[in-house]
């Protein structure tokens, strides 16, 4: 298999994620786009690991990134729920104040 195939797939997925983060308004859909971008990174790690055949270093790092993604989505969704409780919406464009929800 040519190495560029997984790398180009990762590039396409990453750019779809970038589009989603920039174009979406709902915070939860933005978080979903973040997940797509992290998946592109994982694809890169696994592809390079398959290319340089060495003891699964890239796969280990991919598992670390998956753990990071889990931590990120947990905290992110907690923040989104707090935003919804304080403002009644989850619109990233309308959340302009950095004050505490009171």
């Amino acid at each position: 298999m040519p190495l560029v195939l997984p790398l180009l797939l990762a590039v396409v997925l990453f750019c779809i994620g970038v589009y989603g983060v920039l174009a979406r308004r709902n915070v939860i859909t933005m978080l979903m786009s973040f997940e797509l971008m992290l998946n592109a990174v994982n694809l890169n790690l696994v592809a390079f690991d398959a290319w340089r055949v060495d003891e699964a270093t890239g796969q280990t790092l991919a598992i670390f990134v998956i753990t990071l993604a889990a931590a990120e989505i947990g905290l992110g969704l907690a923040i989104v729920l707090l935003l919804f409780r304080g403002h009644g919406h989850v619109d990233a464009d309308a959340a302009r104040d950095l004050e505490e929800a009171s």
Binding site: L43, V46, A47, A50, A62, I63
Partner: peptide
């Protein structure tokens, strides 16, 4: 599935 095709079954 892509990971599986790249022989990374655990990932």
């Amino acid at each position: 599935g892509c990971f599986g095709a790249l022989q990374a079954e655990f990932v």
